[in-house]
Every structure is written in structure tokens, then in C-alpha cells.
Nucleic acid binder design. Structure first.
Ligand SMILES: [Zn+2]
Ligand SMILES: [Zn+2]
Ligand SMILES: [Zn+2]
Ligand SMILES: [Zn+2]
Lengths: 154, 154
DNA sequence: TAAATTATGATATATCATATCATTTCAATC
DNA sequence: GATTGAAATGATATGATATATCATAATTTA
């Protein structure tokens, strides 16, 4: 069920892991593949189910959580805090190092777009925060609304 | 255990509900009071437990969820999506109508500050989003980091 | 090969949230 | 003041998300 794009991304993921001395095992790779094939973010339990369907192999949800942790540590997967779901990074194939991700989440079709918010804007936000004597960690923004397609369907 | 401030806020909450034809029942008021007394956001289950401690009365968690829904609809309480906890609005006593709230969440002591991010900044963010042909719903930002006190303790 | 490390499995349990139906409370109308 | 309808709350069950812990398997290193 893999398409060329997915394969390319997986290859790049592998390279990136090798560079960092991280082991992208076949199971971890399959988890990433499930997310790459998914049209929208998935929960750990959904991922386990998709894994079963796509590989005919059972996988404990607990293992899924651990593998997701691994993938997140290596910036291959992100977690959306606002709905407790996981999504493959949209920038695996780009070689640039990963910034804090920003997400546009469609509340109708649930598709997510990982964007790069203007750096100056993020910087301005950080400055504004500093006025409150607050030290920002990593400003992952999760912005909810309607995607282009769903706007038109209204 | 109520202090003067809490009482004032509760009175204002009552006025605000009357204005909107919403019924701030005594139980709902107690839930709000629990959150006003709390030093940090609380989960629905924690709120139920605090309610028991502070009123010597049992309350089903399901009722807590419903009352929280009511309080949120009336902008008296906010939910933090990033940790599934609830917090009393910091602006109940101010009479101005409520904007989309923004939060600074300390990852060490868990205290939360509800801030007003510069309107121009939010506007710029919205414009930047529109370039992606995305229609923002309500940009509640939850920003994680370290509060002033916890920065010093490092 | 042996030992150490890392990855995965298995089981239990904690935590967060919703669905549904029953009962109580309250306010409006008669 | 009783009747009635709507809103609020209670009770029970269950679903959904997540972590803790100990056991086993695979891989790396010596
Ligand atoms: Zn990414
Ligand atoms: Zn959409
Ligand atoms: Zn508020
Ligand atoms: Zn702090």
C-alpha cells in the first residue's frame, strides 16, 4: 500500500535516524508509515488498529505509545495536544532541521496542515510573552478552524 | 475558606449570569469557587474531590463535567486543551466582554496566567493564517514555559 | 559467546470523558 | 395551591486516553 512519496519519506527518515544514532526499527517504521498513509491525525489506539489492518500483525497499544515517543523525539511525528492525536511530520523529506511546528486543524474534516508561521511573527509573540516575564519553552501553536475545502462547502 | 476577592468575583459572576438569563445555581457556584481557590488548573475529577472536601457534600463527576460546561459557556471557566484541566477565568471581575483567552502555562509549578496577547499580534497571526486559506475559529493560545518564579529557582 | 543495553510484550491500572436514563428542582400556567 | 413542562442533577455504564511495572526478546558491545 506504500506509494512512492511514502517510500521516499521513509528513506529520508531512515537517513535522519542513522545520522542521530537512533534506531528506526521495522516496527517503528511501520508506525510512521501508518501515519503517513493516514489522511488525518490518529490516536494511539487507532494507530494500533491500522497497524493490524496494514500488516496483519497484532501490536500492543503500549508498544504504539513507546514507538510514538521515539518518533516524536526524532521529530518524525508530532502530538496534537488539543485532540490527543498523532500526526506524521510534514517536513521529513525536507532536509532542514526542524523548528517548532505550528498546526492548522480543520474542525470539520479534521485534516491538519503543518505550517511554518512567519518567524518574525513568532519572534514578536515571544517578545510579547517576555513582557510577562515568562520564558517560553517551545511555542507549538495549534490553531483550529476551517480548511479551504470545508469553507467552500458551507 | 472564601476570601473577600473570591466573594467579589462570585458576586460579579452572579450579576453576569443574571444579565444573560443563565442560572448560576449554588452547586455551579461552588464549582466556580473551588476553581477560584485553586492555585493551578484542576481536572474534573480533582474538582469533584475538592468539592467534597470544601463542602462535605458528595458530587458525581458527571455533574462536575456538566457544571463545567455551563461555566465555560458563560466564560467563567476555561479549559486548557494541552493538559485537560480547567481554570477559573481571570477576568470575571473586569466588566469587559471576554475575548479569546491566551494562557501562559508554567511547566514546573503548573500555575497559569491568563493574558491578553496584543491585539495587533493576534491580528497579524490571523492574516498569516489566511494566507494559507484557512479560516481561524478562535485562536486560544496555550503557551508552555517557565513562570518568573520558577526561572529564578533554576 | 557472555554481558549489557535496548526494544518489545503483557498485564494492570490510572485518568479523562461521554451516553443514557432516572429523579429532583424550579418556574410558569392554570 | 395543584399541574405541568423544562432545566438541573444523580446514577450507572462504558468508552477513550495514558502510564507504571515487570517479563521477554533482540541487538550491540566487549
Ligand atoms: Zn514537523
Ligand atoms: Zn476541512
Ligand atoms: Zn477568561
Ligand atoms: Zn512556575
Amino acid at each position: 500500500m506504500t506509494n512512492v512519496d511514502t517510500d521516499k519519506v521513509l528513506q529520508q527518515a531512515e537517513r535522519s535516524c542513522v545520522e542521530h544514532g537512533a534506531r528506526l526499527t521495522s516496527k517503528r517504521k511501520h508506525i510512521l508509515e501508518v501515519l503517513l498513509n493516514a489522511k488525518a491525525p490518529r490516536s494511539a489506539y487507532e494507530i494500533a488498529e491500522l497497524y493490524r489492518q496494514q500488516t496483519d500483525e497484532n501490536i500492543p497499544v503500549m508498544s504504539v505509545y513507546r514507538m510514538l515517543d521515539f518518533l516524536m523525539q526524532n521529530s518524525l511525528v508530532h502530538k496534537l495536544a488539543s485532540n490527543n492525536k498523532f500526526i506524521a511530520c510534514a517536513h521529513i523529506a525536507c532536509s532542514h532541521s526542524h523548528q517548532t511546528p505550528q498546526f492548522l486543524i480543520c474542525d470539520k474534516c479534521h485534516q491538519v496542515r503543518e505550517i511554518g508561521v512567519d518567524k518574525q511573527l513568532i519572534h514578536a509573540l515571544e517578545e510579547s510573552i517576555e513582557h510577562n516575564h515568562f520564558q517560553l519553552n517551545s511555542p507549538q501553536l495549534e490553531l483550529h478552524g476551517l480548511c479551504e475545502t470545508c469553507q467552500e462547502q458551507r
